[in-house]
């Protein structure tokens, strides 16, 4: 089992490095010369050349990538081309702000949607299931930008409970930001809940028809015990991946929602950086997001091992292969639209 974990860790690190390389290369392809962009149109060729060598742009791409990677590992992501500030602290600040909306969202959304999903699965095709399924379908189909606009209309303009947009900058304290997190939290919770509910419902239905549940029922156990002790650990396995991907998506920055509420999180930073072609920031955001994504998936795998002893087998076993197939399916189902 330890070997399995080490192998998973290794492949996680590999994935992050590969992702950072892909982003690095993509960004190198951005048109326009960075040096020229910094110095403006009127710059002379000499000053541009000098800037290029200062920025290290005259060294080969591979060397620059390795240098960047070494810096990144030590937390040095370079300096912003626009503000000239080091990228690391800016990133950290926005990441903190994103955490501030992500944590309540995950706590509220995951708890509620697992409960609702299991409930819908147990009441399959009854009115409770049909209404829960219909609501989650609607939640999946309304774009977040609309959901945000409606909530602003209702709770900021109609009944002024929450501020419509955040006026504080990224440097605001947690206490200053706290009143403005609730509308984004509601929008994100709804968006995330739909996928988790659907997945949990499906896997609950699937597990409840399996042989070992029949055995447990025919042992004369109470239904509550059958569900909680026998069905849930297995039924939650596919849900784990969906939750992991949704968490990763939120921590990586939710561009649309943060944009609507002008919330100073990772998403806004990303959008701003793309508008301004602030390459070091784009790179840093991408790598942090990839790391979070990989870490969340790793965590989901470890939790799966905790829930289901079969997952602890080294690969080669059919159970593992099946569970993996289920995982990637689940992953795809839960990934939804990541904005």
């Amino acid at each position: 089992m330890t070997r399995l974990i080490i192998r998973r860790l290794g492949s996680a690190v590999l994935t992050i490095i590969l992702a950072s390389l892909l982003v690095f290369l993509a960004i190198q392809a951005l048109p326009g010369d960075v040096a020229q962009q910094i110095l403006g149109r009127g710059a002379t060729q000499e000053s541009i050349d000098q800037m290029r060598s200062e920025l290290g742009l005259d060294t080969p791409v591979v060397i620059r990538y390795i240098q960047w990677l070494f810096g990144a590992v030590q937390g040095d992501f370079g300096t912003s081309l626009v503000s000239g500030d080091p990228v690391g602290p800016t990133l950290l600040l926005h990441f903190r702000n994103t955490l501030l909306i992500a944590i309540p969202t995950v706590l509220i959304s995951v708890t509620l949607s697992i409960l609702l999903g299991v409930f819908a699965g147990l009441r399959r095709n009854k009115w409770q299931d049909n209404s829960i399924s219909l609501l989650s379908l609607v939640a999946m189909s309304i774009p977040e930008f609309m959901m945000g606009a409606l909530l602003v209309l209702a709770f900021a303009i109609g009944i002024p409970l929450f501020p419509a947009v955040v006026l504080d900058g990224p440097n605001a304290t947690v206490a200053e930001l706290l009143p403005s997190i609730w509308l984004p939290v509601i929008v994100l919770s709804l968006a995330m809940a739909a996928y988790v509910i659907r997945m949990t419902r499906t896997s609950t239905i699937d597990v409840m028809t399996s042989d070992f549940i029949t055995t447990a029922q025919l042992k004369g156990l109470r239904e509550s015990r059958v569900v909680l002790r026998h069905a849930l650990p297995t039924a939650l396995l596919p849900t784990l991946n969906v939750v992991a991907i949704n968490i990763a998506w939120m921590l990586g920055g939710v561009v649309v929602v943060e944009n609507i509420f002008n919330y100073p999180g990772m998403g806004n930073l990303m959008l701003e950086a793309v508008f301004n072609r602030d390459l070091p920031i784009i790179e840093a955001v991408a790598v942090v997001s990839a790391t979070v994504y990989v870490a969340c998936n790793l965590l989901a795998d470890l939790t799966a091992m905790l829930l289901d002893p079969r997952q602890r087998l080294a690969k080669g076993s059919s159970h593992k292969a099946k569970a993996k197939a289920a995982g990637s399916q689940a992953a795809a189902a839960g990934e939804g639209i990541q904005l």
Binding site: L14, T15, M270, L271, V274, R277, V294, Q338
Partner: peptide
């Protein structure tokens, strides 16, 4: 699958924005 994982790990919207910016 390694490459697929790597691409999936980059936020969809960021990848799109970068492509559009390029």
């Amino acid at each position: 699958m390694r490459v697929v994982d790597a691409i999936l790990s980059v936020p969809t919207i960021l990848a799109l924005l970068v492509v559009v910016a390029v």
